[in-house]
Amino acid sequence: MTSKHFLLFFFFLSAYLLSSSSAARKLSALVEKQPLTITYHRGPLLAGPVSVDIIWYGNFTSSQRAVVSDFLASLSTGEESPSVSSWWTMTRKYYFVATKHAPPRLTLGGQTLDEDYSRGKSLKNADIEELAAKGRRSGGISVVLTAKDVAVEGFCMSRCATHGSSGRSGAGRFAYIWVGNSAAQCPGQCAWPFHQPLYGPQTPPLVAPNGDVGVDGMVINLANMVAGVVTNPFGGGFFMGPAEAPLEAATACPGCMEKVLTRATPASFWLIPRRARATMPMGTTGESIFFRQFLTRQRRRVLLLWDVEIKG
């Protein structure tokens, strides 16, 4: 190839690449990022005053029980921000879309201690539902909390907590939540960000606000499950994706609250990428989780997810 032919070839190649990149920019400008939408599937939701009963399975200290009980009792106290009840007001958006009524008012109900491990130290899903039945059977929420020495089907492998509902019966139908204490089994998976993550960058963890890595991790997981069970108690409420593996109120919208951080201080907010599972500086972009510190009615500190917003 002569130098003249080479120059002509180079000229046409450059022109082609320039036009291609320009077209790509125009095309990308026309394609708008679609907002994540959590859909209401017209199923029943919880209404009116709802009692939250706790079943403590295994050994928990009185201070551990106080942290969790105080958190649940603080959901509907109506105190000013940054209280737990101000975090809970996010559920109003879902109920106003679905029913035009206020969400149920959660109250702390009865508490049952099962310190003798009545069903052993290795539980199946059926055991969790049987334990949940010890709570209020109709129109309530039963919360089963398992101690750090109790193994539960799927715990640490595919889940840290879950929620579900009982079948229909003459005794009524109830929703339930299970959360495990991961302190001795998998804190890097289920007590993050208060423990170094099992995978990803090994940056220093956040300090557990109540000095108990396992229980403070339980509070985060419990908060997610409470938001999920109230907005999707029986499988036909608010969620996106397949019903078999739904993304619910506290998990479906990563990064939606980024605009809130423009007026936040690093002392009250933490921005954490889901994939890296490690704390990052303020302003990091990408697939992220936002944590914020809230106060219970007894002025205890809890760290909760703050990345949820309903779309449409």
Rank of each mutant, 00 (worst) to 15 (best):
M1K: 10
L7G: 07
S14N: 09
L17P: 00
S21I: 15
S21N: 12
K26P: 07
L27N: 13
L27Y: 15
V31E: 15
V31A: 15
K33Y: 11
K33W: 12
T39Q: 15
Y40S: 03
P44W: 01
L46W: 08
A47H: 12
A47Y: 07
P49Q: 15
V52M: 05
D53S: 08
D53C: 02
I54A: 01
I55H: 04
W56M: 00
N59W: 01
N59E: 09
F60W: 02
T61W: 00
R65S: 06
S69V: 02
S69P: 00
D70K: 09
F71P: 11
F71T: 07
S74M: 04
S74I: 06
L75T: 08
E79G: 12
E80F: 10
S85I: 02
S86N: 09
W88Y: 15
T89R: 11
T89E: 15
Y95G: 02
F96S: 13
F96R: 06
V97D: 12
A98E: 01
T99N: 01
A102Q: 07
A102L: 11
T107G: 13
T107K: 14
G109R: 00
G110R: 04
Q111M: 07
G120S: 07
L123V: 10
K124S: 15
I128F: 03
E130L: 11
R136W: 02
G140E: 01
V143H: 05
V143W: 00
V144E: 01
V150G: 06
A151V: 12
A151D: 15
E153G: 10
C156N: 07
C156Q: 08
A161C: 06
A161F: 03
T162M: 08
G164D: 14
S165M: 12
S169A: 12
G170W: 12
G172E: 11
G172C: 13
F174A: 00
G180P: 04
S182I: 11
A184W: 06
Q185L: 15
Q185N: 10
G188S: 05
C190D: 03
P193V: 14
F194Q: 01
Y199T: 12
Y199H: 09
G200N: 05
P201L: 08
L206Q: 08
L206D: 01
P209L: 11
P209R: 05
N210F: 01
V213L: 03
V215F: 00
V219R: 05
V219P: 07
A223L: 00
N224A: 12
M225A: 13
V230Y: 06
F234W: 13
G235A: 05
G235L: 12
G235T: 02
G236E: 13
G236Q: 14
F239S: 11
M240Q: 11
M240C: 09
G241P: 04
P242C: 14
A243C: 02
A252L: 01
C253H: 11
C256K: 07
C256E: 14
C256V: 08
M257Y: 14
R263V: 15
P266M: 08
A267H: 14
F269M: 07
R274A: 11
T279N: 06
T279H: 03
T279D: 03
P281M: 10
M282W: 06
T285C: 03
G286M: 10
E287C: 08
R292N: 05
R297D: 14
L304H: 02
L304Q: 11
V308D: 03
E309I: 10
G312W: 08
